[in-house]
Design a protein around this nucleic acid. Structure first.
Length: 256
DNA sequence: ATGCCCTCTTTGAGAGGA
């Protein structure tokens, strides 16, 4: 089973690229982030025409997440991250697919840091940590994937010294991410490619893609009981070079 | 240090992204 994640940066503007990528790579499941569209503007029919069902949680202007499946719709478990009834951002949707729990997340950016946006990021991460711990306890195999907006190590960014004060790379951000990992989660890309330079995001500025000046911020975390089934983990880097591309690359894994 | 580019929106210039 092939499971992908793709921060589309606006599903309306991205629809041609999204359809081309789905047709060419045929993931069984695709988790999308940054729909930037209200619930009723989601292109359900266009996706259905190429064989994909969807569950999604839209929001006007910002955020928005979806889980696409090739065939039957995913069985939704929740569409908000538990832990804060006041939080209105559409940043998390979770479903059961083929006996797996799949969580699709768009973790807050958090810049500028420090400040209220950074505080929101850290509190969101605390809630995410708590939810991840519950999922591991539940015993069902889990995949948590999406745009984490976290650069895990200096090896995951083209020039780490430029990013030390950025919300994606600050010490507190990395420490919070490390606390999730310490629960027993496995970073699928690094498990299979421990020493390879791999990026999933390239800024639109300064020809970042052409210079390979990227960040690795889109991740797959696997619960302990599914790690042995991991067969492949890759970035569709070339998609970033397409006309009208998102600033993120699709990333995918293959599970037995 | 800042803008760069791209997306969204009360279609303007501003906010947000990372």
């Amino acid at each position: 089973m092939k499971i992908a994640t793709y921060n589309v940066n606006g599903i309306s503007s991205r629809l041609p690229v999204l359809l081309r990528w789905l047709n060419e790579t045929q993931p069984d499941v695709a988790c999308l982030q940054e729909l930037k569209a209200p619930q009723e503007k989601f292109p359900e029919e266009a996706l259905k025409e190429i064989g994909y069902s969807a569950i999604w949680h839209g929001q006007k202007s910002w955020n928005g997440v979806a889980i696409l499946t090739n065939g039957e719709p995913a069985k939704e478990r929740c569409r908000v991250l538990p832990g804060d009834a006041e939080d209105e951002h559409s940043r998390y949707i979770e479903a059961e697919v083929n006996g797996l729990i799949i969580g699709c997340l768009y973790l807050p950016n958090g810049n500028p840091a420090p400040g209220p946006k950074y505080d929101y990021k850290l509190s969101w991460m605390d809630r995410f940590n708590a939810h991840a711990a519950e999922l591991i306890k539940g015993g069902t195999p889990v995949i948590l994937t999406g745009d984490y907006n976290v650069i895990p190590t200096g090896f995951d960014v083209y020039k780490p010294e430029r990013w030390t004060e950025d919300a994606l790379f600050r010490t507190e951000t990395r420490e919070s991410y490390e606390r999730i990992i310490a629960q027993g989660w496995t970073d699928a890309i690094r498990k299979l490619h421990p020493t390879e330079k791999i990026y999933t995001f390239y800024d639109y500025f300064r020809n970042a893609y052409g210079r390979d000046a990227g960040l690795r911020i889109d991740h797959f975390l696997l619960s302990p009981n599914i790690v042995d089934r991991l067969k492949a983990a890759k970035v569709d880097r070339h998609v970033r070079g397409w006309e009208k591309s998102s600033d993120h690359c699709p990333v995918w894994i293959e599970i037995d």
